[in-house]
């Protein structure tokens, strides 16, 4: 279970603190096919390995939206309630393929001070996803931490 960040912990965390460092399981064709069905994704480069290779990819391509979904879940797991995620920006740097084993790191970049007494403290976090030593995705999130513990 990932520990959530409450008001007290948010105050104490130093900039640069690693909030989450998580290895995901290897991506399988079953997962990609299931995701395409669940998400309404229709591009066959995600579920047809032969076609993906004919189009010049190393193998079936992991959906960008699936990678965004992992990044979103990573930051959502750090706060309660989940709606405390105020903003999430994601950029894909490199392609990811089936059988890759991604890992996600979320780091505290800084914070926005509350503008009113008792207001919300907003943590700014960077998100990095990688396969081995190669960075595949970068992102940034703003997480709202309420003074009362409830957003």
């Amino acid at each position: 279970m990932i520990a959530t960040i409450d008001w007290v912990r948010a105050q104490a965390l130093p900039d640069g603190a690693v909030l989450l460092d998580l290895a995901l399981p290897p991506v399988t064709m079953t997962q990609l096919a299931f995701y395409c069905g669940a998400a309404g994704v229709t591009d066959p480069i995600h579920y047809d390995r032969d076609l993906a290779k004919r189009m010049g990819f190393k193998d079936a391509v992991v959906n960008g939206s699936l990678r965004v979904g992992w990044m979103a879940e990573a930051v959502t797991s750090l706060v309660a309630p989940p709606s405390s995620v105020r903003e999430l920006k994601c950029n894909h740097v490199r392609a990811m393929h089936v059988e890759d084993t991604p890992a996600i790191t979320v780091t505290l970049k800084g914070r926005e001070r509350p503008t009113v007494l008792g207001g919300e403290l907003v943590l700014i976090c960077t998100i990095e996803m990688r396969v081995g030593d190669t960075i595949t995705d970068r992102g940034e999130a703003r997480l709202g931490i309420a003074a009362t513990g409830a957003a």
Partner: peptide
């Protein structure tokens, strides 16, 4: 959608829709 993401663990609040599902 949640199962397809395959993210470890379970959501903290099962009544709230994952934000990335919106985009889909």
């Amino acid at each position: 959608y949640w199962e397809a993401l395959g993210f470890p663990g379970r959501p903290r609040d099962c009544e709230i829709v994952p934000l990335t599902l919106l985009a889909l």
